[in-house]
């Protein structure tokens, strides 16, 4: 797993991809920081994190699109699948590398909070709660998009599917408002990433939501392993 993690991390930073993702994240973070915090003259980072929710939904599919699909297309997966490494280690290695890049990308929000703390009082529990929320959201989204990348040979298709799923996870809230059945309302509200993310923006470490995001991540990592294993038997 360590070998694959190292290689993938290296691949992010030996191509423009890693830098572009981090640059875009930093650009939007600082844009919102300027618009809401500096211009609005406030130390409340909740709005910034709420806006970053949408940015993350579009960044993660780009971050993960090549992870599995490119190996399949270029047939470099032959080396991995014939090496003494388990399928789980392959998936986890790739997943962890994407998580590290994601962490670097969202760290801009913490950096802005640190800078602000030199000139004003920052509500750190709220900032850290928000950061934890966006981190957990990323864990789940990366796992979902990694799985989508594992079922296609095309990076573009993987990215488009990732965007579609991300949008669906946002729109799922709207669906819960239009359905009349109480059961479906509860069901869609339960699945809503937005609803799950909200407690963190208030600085609350909501354990059920945290477990939800981690469970989604674990489930889709398992799906990716199964997809890889299935190819062996197809």
């Amino acid at each position: 797993m360590k070998a694959i993690f190292k290689r993938e991390l290296r691949a992010y930073f030996h191509s423009p991809l890693g830098y572009v993702i981090i640059a875009v994240a930093y650009f939007f973070t600082n844009y919102y920081y300027f618009s809401y915090n500096l211009y609005g003259n406030t130390t409340d980072f909740t709005t910034l994190y709420s806006m970053m929710f949408s940015v993350v939904l579009f960044l993660v599919p780009v971050l993960t699109m090549r992870l599995m699909s490119e190996e399949k297309r270029a047939k470099t997966d032959q080396l991995l699948l014939t090496a003494p490494v388990s399928r789980t280690a392959i998936v986890l290695g790739k997943y962890c590398s994407a998580v590290v890049v994601y962490l670097v990308a969202i760290s801009a929000t913490l950096l802005d909070a640190v800078i602000t703390s030199f000139v004003a009082i920052v509500d750190w529990p709220s900032v850290l709660g928000n950061f934890l929320g966006i981190f957990l959201l990323g864990l789940a989204l990366i796992a979902i998009c990694l799985f989508l990348s594992s079922i296609t040979e095309s990076q573009v298709i993987a990215a488009v599917m990732g965007f579609a799923v991300s949008l669906f996870l946002v729109l799922i809230d709207a669906i819960s408002y239009v359905v009349s059945s109480a059961f479906w309302q509860t069901f869609f509200a339960y699945l809503s990433f937005n609803t799950r993310y909200e407690p963190f923006t208030l600085g609350i470490v909501d354990l059920p939501s945290a477990v939800f995001f981690v469970s989604v991540a674990a489930l889709f990592i398992a799906f990716s392993v199964v997809t890889l294993e299935r190819r062996r038997w197809s």
Partner: peptide, 27 residues
């Protein structure tokens, strides 16, 4: 097992030494 597939596929962003070190890591 040491395996050389029919179509040797490589990572385009890797140098020979990096690639062989990666294989060492894998094994």
């Amino acid at each position: 097992i040491g395996y050389m597939p029919e179509q040797f596929s490589f990572y385009p962003d890797m140098r020979v030494s990096e690639y062989l070190n990666f294989v060492c890591d894998l094994k």
